[in-house]
């Protein structure tokens, strides 16, 4: 519900102020990686829903069940034992760009950026600050970022191969906006 309101708010802000523009995608990409002794754990989600407004607001949403692993058993464990994705089907991030003045959406270039906001995974919400880059190329925008997530911060416990997976996983965000 909160997210819907946030999106509506973004939409309203877009119509009331002509200077603001919203970029969006429904096929952004989020990957995660975790090194494990037996086999590295890697999965990709290609249905990341994201909106980026030129006033600095940024929203990402993804369905946990949309992560695809090479190994089917691993995918099952991830959903059932770690993420409990039937109970918590979504991960959401909503935040704002803190160095908006440094980004010129009308000028091609790669801008370093920092975003602060709230990340919700596994039903746990946490304030986070994440670094990344925004690239502008002939009017097209893309966002990239790589950061680590501590599983215990989001109350994620594995019951099956609990001890074997890393305490932190690396998350890579790569979204090209329409």
């Amino acid at each position: 519900m909160k997210k819907t309101l946030l999106i509506l708010l973004l939409a309203v802000m877009c119509t009331t102020s002509q200077a603001q523009k919203i970029f969006q995608t429904k096929s952004g990409k989020v990957k995660f990686f975790s090194s494990a002794p037996l086999e590295n754990i890697e999965a990709v989600n290609n249905q990341v829903d994201s909106k980026l407004a030129t006033n600095g607001q940024l929203v990402f949403m993804l369905g946990i069940k949309g992560f695809r692993f090479e190994n089917a058993t691993m995918q099952e464990h991830f959903n059932e034992n770690y993420m409990e994705s039937t109970k918590y089907p979504k991960a959401v991030f909503g935040g704002t760009i803190t160095n908006l003045a440094a980004i010129n959406f009308d000028k091609d270039g790669t801008y370093n950026t920092s975003v602060t906001g709230e990340l919700e995974i596994h039903g746990v919400k946490k304030k986070v600050s994440i670094d990344g880059t925004i690239e502008i190329k002939s009017g097209k925008v893309s966002v990239k970022s790589k950061f680590n997530i501590k599983l215990s911060d989001y109350n994620i416990k594995g019951s099956l191969i609990g001890e074997k997976i890393a305490k932190e996983v690396e998350v890579t965000v790569d979204c090209k906006y329409d």
Partner: peptide
């Protein structure tokens, strides 16, 4: 396909 829930749209994959 397999339904992974609703974001802006209802999402179907594979």
């Amino acid at each position: 396909g397999i339904c992974t829930g609703k974001l802006s749209d209802v999402v179907i994959i594979d």
